[in-house]
Simulated assay, not measured.
Amino acid sequence: MVYYQTAPLDRTFAALSDPTRRELLARLEARDGMSVSELAKPLPMSLPAVMKHLDVLSDAGLVTRTKTGRTVVCRLNAAPMEEAMEWLTRYQRFWTAALDRLANFIEDDSCSPSQASPSPAASTPPPPKSSPPGRTPKK
């Protein structure tokens, strides 16, 4: 079996792609130095499942773990996200230009509701009925 070294940027985006891992990072951002059990407590999954998520975050360099006795403490390391932000910033011009065009279109007053033509359905009378309402008598 051949193992390829995954690029750090790929590992960062892969780690950030999961909502559970993003939640773990957000909790570590709010309070630095949480134990694995503290991180796992509010999550609806087993401790081994949380540890697997922490392994992915650790492999991406987003979390550092230190063990003191039986307690493993996790800390956020946001440095790998900086490279991801630099990569995203290169492509920001594409969505910024599209959003600017959309804003200009919405702000354009050339087609206000009062200038719009009435719909054809509103100006066309309904077609006449072929028979009076009710049951048709049998012959």
Rank of each mutant, 00 (worst) to 15 (best):
P44S: 09
W87V: 10
R135K: 14
E29H: 12
R70G: 10
A60S: 07
D100L: 11
E83Y: 06
M81H: 06
M34T: 00
R21Q: 02
S46N: 03
L76N: 04
S37A: 12
P8K: 01
K139R: 15
V63W: 11
S130L: 10
T6F: 07
V36I: 13
G61I: 02
P8R: 00
P42M: 00
A103H: 06
H53M: 03
F13L: 13
T66L: 13
L88E: 09
T20F: 00
S114G: 06
A26V: 09
R27F: 01
L47T: 06
L24R: 15
T68Y: 11
P48F: 01
A40K: 02
S131Q: 15
A97E: 11
A121P: 03
L16P: 03
A103R: 13
K139L: 10
A79E: 13
D10C: 11
R70I: 05
A30L: 14
P127R: 03
T66H: 10
M85K: 11
R135F: 13
R22Q: 15
L62G: 02
A49S: 13
A15Q: 02
M45R: 14
Q5F: 12
M1I: 08
P19V: 07
A7W: 10
S17G: 07
D55R: 15
K129C: 06
K41V: 06
D59S: 04
V63D: 00
M51K: 14
V73D: 06
A30F: 03
P137A: 01
Q5V: 11
M1W: 04
A103L: 13
P120G: 03
P42R: 01
P137R: 14
T6C: 10
R90K: 08
G134S: 00
T68C: 07
K41M: 08
S46M: 01
S114N: 09
E82V: 11
A15R: 05
L62S: 04
K129Q: 15
R31G: 03
K129L: 09
T12L: 04
A14M: 09
A60M: 02
N104Q: 11
A40L: 05
V50M: 02
L47I: 12
S114R: 14
L39K: 03
M85D: 08
M85I: 10
P80G: 00
S123M: 14
L102M: 07
P126V: 02
D32Y: 06
P133V: 00
P44F: 04
A7V: 07
L88K: 08
M81K: 15
T71L: 12
A116K: 14
T20K: 05
P44V: 08
G61C: 01
T64S: 12
P137K: 14
V50I: 07
L54V: 02
A60G: 04
T124M: 04
R31S: 09
R11P: 00
L43N: 00
P113I: 07
W95N: 06
D10R: 15
Y4M: 13
R11S: 10
S35R: 14
F105Q: 12
P113F: 02
P128H: 05
G69D: 04
D109A: 09
S119T: 09
L43G: 00
P132W: 04
E107G: 05
E107N: 08
Q5W: 08
Y91D: 11
A84R: 07
L9I: 14
T96C: 07
L76A: 02
K139G: 13
